[in-house]
């Protein structure tokens, strides 16, 4: 199947991506469950060397998007094009086992939970060396040298390689995960809530490390988080997700200055600021109600029951993600027409 090639600046192009879990009866004598539409018609691109932030609240499907891009799950519908290091474009959504196996060297993941993402029964040498072994890159003393180099790179002492993960704090374990992800010199790393479980001072250290590594190796990041201040700090462009849909995609500054979707506005307004005087002066938008269930989203625009600007059309018709301003996309019937408040 011919794949439309990506230009040299683009690393990933996701088009109309959907993932539904469950649905039809899964096995013999088992009961049918309603399908959970975790990801619905998501489209965006990631440029080479940039950090793309994906924000959203729990159940928004942001983690699922990352896992689909790395093909931890099978894709229900849509296409994920990836530009390989040799310049050829591949379609990941339909890639076969062998093809994926080779591609895994070029894309890696950092997990949220630094405790469960490292096998407690393996030493640092085994953990960080595993990708090298699997892909036959190095073995023996060469492997040890490479692991020592990787550990040094993330600020851990190479002498630690005989230790097990239980010897390390959360922040250090996260660094072990980063070293493992870097082992095969990937082009792309998806960081799924990589610093959310850490204390602020430790999170800051690891964020700086990730940015240094990006500079050093020209990495492209997909940075998934629910922390808007963090995503603003690290991302060049941001996608905002809500109930499996991408509500807005835009470069960071313009989005925070002047959001194009009412949900983005509400999110920005909800973040408590470490500035007591400003908090008092600010009028916050209080969203009514709760996040809808992904197995039973509302008709029309998924955000309409909570949207302060909702009109009749919002209840009836689901808007498309469209380019409302140059390079800025919004899934709102009134994108560009409303005057929404940003964070500045």
């Amino acid at each position: 199947m011919p794949v439309e090639p990506l230009n040299s600046e683009t690393l990933f192009a996701v088009t109309g991506l959907s993932k539904h879990f469950g649905g039809a009866a899964k096995g013999w004598l088992q009961k049918e469950k309603p399908a959970v539409k975790a990801v619905n018609d998501v489209s965006f691109t990631i440029a080479r060397g940039e950090t793309f932030g994906l924000v959203g609240e729990s159940g928004s499907g942001k983690s699922t998007v990352a896992r689909l891009m790395l093909r931890a799950y099978d894709v229900t519908a849509g296409s994920i094009r990836f530009r390989r290091s040799d310049g050829n474009t591949v379609e990941l959504a339909s890639a076969g086992k062998a093809e994926l196996q080779a591609l895994r060297r070029q894309m890696q993941m950092i997990f949220q939970d630094p405790y469960s993402s490292l096998n407690p029964r393996m030493t640092l040498l085994e953990l960080v060396g595993e990708p090298l072994l699997i892909h036959g890159v190095a073995s023996g003393s060469e492997l040890e040298d490479r692991v020592a180099e990787l550990l040094r790179l993330v600020g851990l002492r190479p002498e630690f390689r005989g230790r097990y993960p239980h010897a390390f704090s959360g922040g250090q374990r996260q660094r072990i995960g980063i070293a493992r992800a870097l082992a095969l010199n990937p082009a792309f790393i998806a960081a799924d809530e990589a610093v959310s479980a850490l204390d602020v001072s430790v999170a800051a250290q690891n964020i700086n490390l990730m940015q240094d590594l990006q500079e050093q190796f020209g990495l492209t990041y997909l940075f998934i988080t629910h922390d808007l201040s963090m995503v603003q700090h690290i991302s060049n462009r941001i996608g905002v997700m809500y109930v499996g849909r991408l509500m807005e995609v835009s470069a960071t500054e313009p989005m925070f200055a002047e959001p194009l979707h009412p949900y983005t506005e509400a999110l920005l307004s909800a973040v408590p600021q470490p500035d007591p005087k400003r908090n008092r002066g600010r009028k916050r938008i209080m969203l009514k109600g709760e996040i809808p269930d992904a197995s039973n989203p509302p008709k029309g625009c998924a955000f309409h029951p909570r949207c302060p600007y909702a009109k009749d059309i919002c209840k009836a018709e689901e808007p498309e993600l469209r380019e409302a301003k140059p390079g800025r996309f919004s899934r709102c019937h009134f994108a560009g027409e409303l005057s929404l408040t940003g964070a500045y």
């Binding site: 999110l267 209080m286 709760e290």
Partner: peptide, 8 residues
């Protein structure tokens, strides 16, 4: 809690 719920 999520940000919007936290604000509530």
């Amino acid at each position: 809690l999520d940000v919007t719920t936290e604000a509530q």
